[in-house]
Design a protein around this nucleic acid. Structure first.
Length: 770
DNA sequence: GTCTACGAAGGCTAG
DNA sequence: CTTCGTAGAC
């Protein structure tokens, strides 16, 4: 780490004449006050000039503040123009907040900065440079669902065995290749399955091009290739962005890493390299599954030999006790740069733990604790967050919260934009904005049912192939197909007329909201839902109304915004973008996955499902590297808590419709013993008798538990048959060779291969059926 | 030819 | 427990 220039006191203000004229002296005082509010390393990070800067920011060490202040300092004290700044954040929400913070410091000219996510930034560049790539600037963005659907179509066209090569898996592999910047030309397959993948990759890319579409990973990869293939384009952006700031650098993948490098430049051309500032914490890297690699942060100094590293270890968020727990857990990971978070905030209260009988009991306990905390009057629901490892865990909490009348919001999960009706409606918009978009076109061609079935679709496709025209054009020329039934032909003609009507609407200046309303009305989509007796469809109507509101809001916020612009905004939203904004009211309890929780903080945090097989996730148990990632996830979870941390696990949990006896999470053993106070009893594997579960207590105190399933009296035992493959936490994989007894006394003899043959009581054995 | 109902299969985290 | 694919009914 290089020695930093001491805080320069009252900084001179070179090159900000305009500002100084409008606010003489005031900006200087503002900057002084701003710098004085930072600690030493933070201040160094803010005022650092020149070479690449790595800020290793521990959890809660004020990195967002440092970034915002650094930008303000660049603008206020170093004469940087807002247009020269590119800041890349993790979510759109973070980008918005960053912009706002800077705006309060330097005024409305902050608007000229680029503050966005990687994906938004790439879309912006790609739309501007689409011509260079032979694309229309109104290209459609395919999300994961679209990619999988397209890949499934590709696999079918290649006559691939759907069992061996599911679209989902092929799409995932292609995604991984793109994250490594390996395009379909560069990919060199070795094995037979890889050759199949290569074929699928090629055809998939061809179909994307025909549809004028890009998938999520294309956005990054194509931007990199654009910058590499067109030096003039690269130079243009390098001239423009003299400062590149990247947040959450530990979550960048290879493609994003190269993208940053290309934007910054090496200075070998006519433009000197931009000033690069990255912020991150290797201990909070939790996105390996989408290609993120800690390497990027660990090797920053090797990638940029001139780099300066600044370590932020003082934590302004949590109590010392919470930090001690977090430090202890993360210290079990190997090969990490040692880091020790500290605070002068004092010890704080003990972490409270609870061993629940089952997941319902766990949820009831959480609800009970929240109720008590809110009753005390010290915290409001909005101060409280409940975290879980996987989205499906939210359901049980929702059930209990609804029952006890606790206001809450689930962030993420079955995301709004992934709901069927919302996707259908958006698919119509996509088709209108981009008729070449086959995936969307085929999604809506018979939605709602209008008598264009599989057969008719195949006829059109054949015709399109024969005539070498696009599917959309074949539809329009359906009368020439010949082999179509009159009935189908009529249906198709009506559908085409409908599409033309919508296109007409856009040409006459309708915005996305009006178009959406017209689509839902004229296609009969809304009418069908309203006429339905299915109670689920009521919610669907609500969701569609919500979507229209979103479109109306979009129009209000960006006048003149096109349908394409609206679709872009909608496809790039993140889970974390929908976290409720803190107001003056009591707000609601927030529930989310640990992944979504990254970057957030709450006075009170509940960390649930601390069981081996849940958290750490089952898929990570056998893999030390994945286990370390789970541990980082635990570290992220613990460090979200400001004042109070509650942790819980369930002795038995229903998963996949089967009860599973999960052992305590190994992370529990890694917590310092004196930081946790276990409620009710010691953390023992078997539930003892004679204590009342939270579920029973909730029932007794009038917080009715109604018909909670899987209660204490209704203990289910894992059902296995001879020949079943099972997994045991300690013994590994095995095969059931004998079953005896019934109910609680049921036993199974399991052959664990090299692990020997064991006789297990199913009631207690941590056995999972495969 | 198209729609609906049933059985099988796969299940995490996300822009 | 959900989503997908395939078989039978309209």
């Amino acid at each position: 780490m290089s020695v930093q220039q001491a805080f320069p006191g009252a900084p001179a203000l070179p090159g900000t004449e305009a500002l100084q004229r409008s606010a003489p002296g005031q900006l200087g005082r503002e900057l002084d006050r701003m710098l004085a509010s930072l600690n030493g390393p933070q201040r160094q990070a803010v005022v650092h000039e020149g070479g690449p800067l790595l800020i290793v920011a521990g959890a809660g060490s004020g990195k967002t503040r440092v970034l915002a202040h650094r930008i303000a300092y660049l603008l206020g004290a170093r004469g940087t123009q807002p247009g020269e700044i590119l800041a890349i954040t993790f979510t759109n929400k973070a980008a918005g907040e960053m912009k706002e913070r800077v705006a309060t410091l330097v005024g409305p000219r902050a608007r000229a900065m680029w503050v966005s996510t990687f994906h938004s930034m790439c879309v912006r560049i790609l739309r501007a440079e689409a011509g260079k790539l032979g694309m229309k600037s109104s290209f459609t963005i395919y999300d994961q669902g679209d990619s999988v659907r397209l890949m499934t179509m590709v696999a079918r066209d290649l006559d691939l065995d759907a069992k061996r090569y599911p679209g989902r898996s092929l799409a995932a592999q292609v995604s991984n290749l793109k994250n490594e910047l390996i395009d379909e030309e560069a990919y060199v397959p070795g094995t037979a399955p890889e050759k199949v993948l290569a074929e699928a990759y090629k055809l998939y890319q061809q179909r994307l091009r025909q549809a004028h579409a890009m998938d999520f990973d294309d956005l990054i990869m194509t931007t990199v290739h654009l910058l590499q293939a067109f030096p003039d384009v690269a130079e243009h952006y390098r001239r423009r962005f003299r400062h590149v700031l990247v947040d959450e650098y530990q979550d960048t993948n290879h493609a994003q890493y190269v993208l940053v490098r290309e934007l910054v430049g090496t200075g070998t051309g006519p433009v000197p390299p931009a000033e690069l500032c990255v912020v991150g914490d290797a201990d909070q890297s939790i996105y390996a599954f989408r290609g993120a690699t800690i390497r990027n942060i660990d090797e920053f100094e090797r990638d940029y030999p001139q780099a300066t590293t600044i370590l932020l270890e003082q934590n302004y968020r949590s109590t010392q006790r919470i930090l001690r727990a977090a430090n202890q857990v993360i210290s079990k990971n190997t090969g990490r740069r040692p880091k020790n978070l500290w605070t002068d905030a004092g010890d704080g209260e003990l972490i409270e733990g609870y061993v629940a009988e089952n997941e319902h009991d766990e949820a009831a306990w959480v609800a009970e604790q929240i109720d008590a905390l809110v009753d005390e009057g010290t915290v409001k629901p909005k101060d409280i967050a409940v975290f879980y490892r996987t989205n499906n865990a939210s359901r049980v909490f929702e059930e209990v919260f609804i029952r006890v009348g606790m206001p809450y919001k689930v962030v993420g999960g079955v995301r709004f934009y992934e709901r069927k009706e919302v996707r259908d409606a958006l698919a119509y918009l996509k088709v209108v904005a981009n008729p070449a978009d086959v995936v969307s076109l085929r999604r809506v061609i018979n939605t709602p049912k209008r008598g264009i079935g599989e057969r008719a679709e195949a006829c059109i496709e054949n015709f399109a192939d024969r005539e070498r025209i696009a599917f959309a054009n074949a539809l329009r020329r359906c009368s020439e197909v010949g082999e179509l039934a009159t009935r189908s032909l009529k249906a198709i003609q009506e559908f085409v007329a409908l599409l033309e009507e919508f296109e007409q609407l856009v040409e006459t200046g309708s915005g996305p909201a009006a178009l959406l309303e017209s689509i839902l009305d004229r296609t009969g989509y809304l009418a069908e839902l309203q006429a339905s007796t299915d109670p689920q469809d009521e919610g669907r109507v609500d969701n569609l109304n919500e979507l229209i509101s979103v479109a109306a809001e979009f129009e209000a916020a960006s006048p003149g915004g096109t349908v394409t612009d609206f679709l872009e905004q909608v496809s790039l939203v993140a889970d974390a973008d929908q976290i409720p904004v803190a107001g003056d009211d009591a707000g609601v309890v927030t529930m989310m996955t640990l992944h979504t929780a990254k970057g957030l903080e709450f006075p009170v945090v509940f960390l649930t499902g601390l069981e081996d097989g849940v958290f750490p996730h089952l898929r990570a148990l056998g893999d030390p590297r994945e286990l370390e990632e789970e541990r980082r996830l635990a570290y992220v979870g613990i460090t979200r808590a400001q004042q109070r941390l509650f942790i819980s696990r369930a002795t038995v949990r229903t998963s996949w419709g089967q009860p599973a006896y999960n052992p305590p999470s190994r992370f529990l053993d890694e917590l310092p013993g004196d930081t946790v106070q276990w409620a009710g009893k010691e953390p023992a594997p078997a539930p003892s008798t004679g204590y009342r579960s939270a579920q029973q207590r909730v029932a007794a105190t009038g917080l009715s538990t109604g018909g909670l399933r899987g209660g204490a009296g209704n203990r289910a035992v894992i059902a296995v048959d001879v020949g079943d493959r099972v997994s045991h936490d300690a013994f590994g994989l095995g095969t059931v060779v004998e079953v005896s007894g019934a109910g609680d006394k049921a036993q199974a003899t399991v052959d664990f291969g090299s692990g020997g043959t064991k006789r297990l009581v199913l009631r207690y054995a941590p056995l999972v059926k495969l």
